[in-house]
Design a protein around this nucleic acid. Structure first.
Length: 560
RNA sequence: UGACCCAUGGUGUAACGGUAGCACUCCGGUUUUUGGUAUCGUCAGUCAAGGUUCGAAUCCUUGUGGGUCAACCA
């Protein structure tokens, strides 16, 4: 059997190596650990695809663990949204878990630390503690409280837990080294007092564990074999291991933290903090605004789960900082929709066209192919009549040979219909064309098999019958930022680069009548224009479409 | 004036001491009742300098460039 040699990313190589060195593959276990303080974005998708993907390749469990140790930022709304997005992406978790499930165990371990002389209560102000921490190039100094007795520490910590102290007055610190090169090792805080209701534990706790004290121990409790996080946590690894060593019982598996580069996309921002700003300052219409790089935004925009998975797969996993071209994401959605989206005709910028030799009251039903890429897609009926709308930019009174569309005295094919020739125009007082008058070749109907129907004309344009068309709202989206990396400028705020034209609403578009029965989420290709889906705001009487992504347009490029 | 991480076409990612490959983008040809799709093709890369080796993108040294670290955030 010829085996295809698939190249492995560095994380897969680490696992392969661990397996080779004796790790039993039944011990493999992964986790995806979001903090429920915002919505998931395309960067998280990379991590989700990585962890759940590893679960699939190795047939290993993958936990969904909410890292909920900071009640000031976390909400149930986010928990629900995160679960929805992961499911939608097509993944299933083994256990739904919460760091807060481990608050009691973490507390007991903190007492163990105190008993072992590895932790102490500090009642200095946060400013004093920060001051003593030193700087990256200058060592810190010991807290005056560093050598409290075990008994005193136990008592103070108990009081912290019982709510006897004011918020911010006391912390529990690990006793490591104030001279370590790694700032995180300089006696990091592991518990702080917070009188804040937690979305799961309510008011049970007055003290909350910090990230570093929680994450590794949670991995350990769940016996996660490989704990993957993004690059900025690399300095935390030393502390992660230090904490683990304090509670390790010698038998269990010791989780391993490794870091990979977060996935950045050009022309957008990828940090929950900044996305939250956009939402709160109403620069977008919520987390699921179709311009947002959130999973919910992309979904509403018309991106499919598969396209996002394919993107993550193609973009890969590595350790260097990156800004991936948004064109790669767009490629994957176009690639999929090209094969699956039914073709329809819609006119976004209508101008009236009259076929003067077509009988006044005649109507015809023409047959249109639903998808040339899919022979099982079948066909549909499209009504034709004397007066139609075409795209304003598809007509010019005069143009050079490169303009393949309609111009005076020249012919063009109406898609799925007849060949027409433009004869004259009617203009209003400002000189704008209000009507194009044409004649049609009666024998040239598409698919009729006649000689005339087989004639080659250079251009084909789309249209809708005015009498039969449905008026619709169409929302055109452009990139949210004008800069490739809006948050990379040290002296400028990312919001300075917001694209003022990122949303264009067209309220007088016309679509063919077959769209009458379309419902929210349905996806189409508006021929020659792009891929569109029906937005949540859409109603039976007022169809609303989002443009997911335009078609490649080599004509527009040529005209630049 | 520290420690740690990183460096391959425009972008993203492979090659694990033995032919620098793939995808996207860009550009061009062919086909086409979508200026779409498909298809064919072009352009284009190992940060630098030393060293080890028969052989270096890969190992070593130094430099350069980028990133991370001084929240009672995660």
């Amino acid at each position: 059997m010829a085996e295809e040699k698939k190249s492995l990313n560095f994380i897969e190589q680490i696992i392969k190596e661990d397996l080779k060195n004796g790790l039993d593959n039944t011990k493999l276990r992964f986790r995806f650990p979001p903090e429920p303080n915002g919505y998931l974005h395309i960067g998280h998708a990379a991590s989700i695809c990585l962890n759940f993907g590893l679960g699939q390749t190795y047939n290993a469990p993958v936990n969904l663990r909410f890292d909920d140790t900071n009640p000031t930022k976390e909400e149930q709304e986010y928990v629900d949204a995160i679960k929805k997005d992961i499911k939608w992406l097509g993944f299933e978790w083994d256990n739904e878990l919460y760091s807060s499930d481990y608050f009691q165990q973490l507390y007991e371990w903190a007492i163990l630390l105190i008993n072992n002389g590895k932790a102490y209560v500090d009642d200095q102000t946060s400013a004093q503690i920060a001051e003593q921490k030193g700087t990256p190039t200058q060592v810190g100094t010991d807290s005056p409280n560093r050598n409290r007795s075990v008994e005193e520490n136990l008592e103070l910590f108990e009081k912290m837990k019982n709510g006897d102290f004011k918020e911010g007055s006391h912390v529990l610190r690990a006793k490591i080294s104030m001279t370590a090169n790694n700032m995180l090792m300089r006696d990091p805080i592991i518990y702080r007092i917070l009188y804040k209701k937690h979305h799961r534990t309510g008011n049970d706790w007055n003290i909350y564990p910090m990230y570093d004290w929680t994450h590794g121990e949670s991995d350990y409790i769940e016996q996660i074999s490989h704990s993957f996080c993004t690059l900025e946590f690399n300095p935390h690894r030393e502390l992660y291991n230090w904490f683990l060593k304090q509670v390790y019982n010698g038998d269990n598996l010791k989780p391993k933290q490794r870091e990979f580069a977060r996935r950045n996309l050009s022309y957008t921002v990828m940090s929950k903090r900044k996305l939250l700003q956009l939402v709160e300052e109403e620069l977008v219409n919520g987390w699921d605004d179709p311009r947002m790089p959130t999973i919910s935004g992309l979904r509403r925009r018309g991106y499919t789960a598969k396209s996002i998975r394919d993107f993550s797969e193609t973009a890969g996993i590595a350790k260097r900082d990156n800004i991936t071209d948004i064109a790669l994401l767009e490629f994957h959605i176009k690639n999929e929709l090209n094969k699956t989206a039914p073709r329809v005709m819609a006119v976004l910028d209508p101008v009236k066209l009259v076929i003067t030799n077509y009988p006044e009251n005649k109507e015809e039903i023409l047959i249109a192919e639903n998808n040339p890429e899919d022979e099982n897609a079948g066909s549909r009926e499209v009504p034709f009549s004397r007066e139609i709308y075409i795209e304003r930019e598809d007509f010019r009174e005069q143009a050079n040979k490169k303009f393949f569309r309609l111009k005076l005295d020249k012919e063009v094919r109406l898609k799925n219909a007849y060949i027409i020739k433009a004869n004259s125009v009617v203009k209003d007082e400002s000189g704008e064309i209000t009507e194009i008058q044409c004649t049609y070749d009666e024998d040239s109907r598409s698919g009729s098999g006649s000689e005339a129907s087989k004639r080659k004309v250079k251009g084909t344009i789309h249209w809708v019958s005015i009498k039969h068309a449905i008026k619709a709202e169409v929302r055109l989206y452009d990139r949210l930022f004008t800069d490739e990396a809006p948050d990379s400028h040290k002296d400028k705020d990312f919001k300075e680069f917001i694209n003022p034209n990122s949303l264009k609403i067209i309220d007088n578009a016309f679509v063919e009548p077959s769209l009458k029965t379309a419902t929210v989420g349905n996806q189409f290709q508006f021929q020659r224009l792009g891929y569109f889906n029906i937005d949540n705001d859409s109603t039976k009487d007022n169809l609303v479409f989002n443009r997911t992504v335009p078609l490649r347009d080599s004509w527009a490029k040529q005209n630049k």
